[in-house]
């Protein structure tokens, strides 16, 4: 393997509270190549904060520190806001959870996607339009010319999320961070959106960080999984070896999920004392 795209060592995110500083991410280290990595954990485990910290999107009073936070040889922590903006979107981009809140309600879909290109490149108008349409086609939107003229409230949740993916991929970034990209969507649409992300990542040879609370979903779309609990990685494993997970937290999560052919009378509940050291 060549040098990793992302190289993170001892990442910490800290927030001050009335009872002293609280570490929400505690000493996270991992490297990401051109591969699909899943980060799984409950709410409050620090998985979203990890994604935000990579893009330097943690707002004060939150503080991000790391021994190393490198992207493609660039030290992200040493970049000023202006230089960071050149990386954000163009080289690393992020798909957020809910298209309802993340798309601009007063701009047409076509204009928003075009804006993503214009922020980073100079393109002629004709080229711009054809690129927007081609991108919408790539995320399987039929009739892209019509959809480009619509406003976000005029499309369904699934289509909104595909629009957001189009917007994030059109500047051709190297790494895509997808933070719960499908949890606001329906079961049947979820698979479709994930397939589109997967297809785009694979065809362009990008790196993907898929953040989710759904172990099964992450296992079926990623090669490698990090399981986070209270700001720390408690388990790292290959997706196909998830069933052999060692850590009691991962095993607890797996056991707590009902199956489609469920026969248990009661679901085992996580006993958090089993692994938290006092």
């Amino acid at each position: 393997m060549t040098a990793p795209l992302l190289d993170i060592e001892n990442l910490r995110v800290t927030f001050p509270t009335s009872t002293g500083p609280v570490d929400v991410v505690r000493g996270l280290s991992f490297a990401l190549g051109r591969e699909r990595l899943g980060i799984v954990g409950e709410s409050g485990s620090g998985k979203s904060m990890t994604g935000r910290a990579i893009l330097r999107l943690v707002r004060p009073p939150g503080r991000v520190t790391a021994d190393r936070l490198h992207f493609d040889g660039i030290d992200l922590l040493a970049q000023n806001p202006r230089r960071m903006r050149l990386i954000r979107g163009a080289r690393i981009s992020m798909v957020m959870q809910d298209p309802k809140f993340s798309l601009n309600p007063v701009m047409t879909i076509g204009a928003q996607i075009a804006e993503a290109v214009l922020t980073h490149e100079r393109v002629s108008r004709v080229d711009l339009h054809s690129r927007v349409v081609a991108m919408l086609e790539a995320v399987r939107i039929d009739d892209p010319d019509r959809v480009a003229a619509l406003y976000p409230h005029e499309v369904s949740g699934g289509m909104g999320q595909r629009v957001m993916i189009a917007m994030m991929l059109i500047p051709q970034p190297d790494v895509l961070i997808a933070d719960e990209p499908t949890s606001a969507l329906d079961g049947s649409v979820q698979a479709q959106v994930l397939d589109i992300i997967d297809e785009q990542i694979t065809s362009k040879g990008m790196g993907l960080i898929l953040i989710s609370h759904d172990l099964n979903m992450v296992a079926s779309y990623c090669e490698r999984i990090l399981v986070m609990y209270r700001g720390e990685v408690v388990e790292e494993c290959r997706a196909d070896a998830l069933a052999d997970a060692r850590h009691p937290y991962t095993r607890g999560l797996l056991a707590a999920m009902p199956h489609i052919d469920e026969t248990r009378d009661e679901l085992p509940v996580l006993d958090r004392r089993a692994w938290t050291t006092p």
Partner: peptide, 28 residues
């Protein structure tokens, strides 16, 4: 969350057994 879901599902199952409730549940 999955871990909390398990607790609530167990609770619903137990309540139904204890109080003889009827459930009509919408879910996907």
């Amino acid at each position: 969350d999955v871990s909390v879901q398990a607790e609530i599902l167990n609770l619903l199952k137990r309540l139904r057994r204890e109080q003889g409730l009827t459930y009509l549940m919408v879910t996907h």
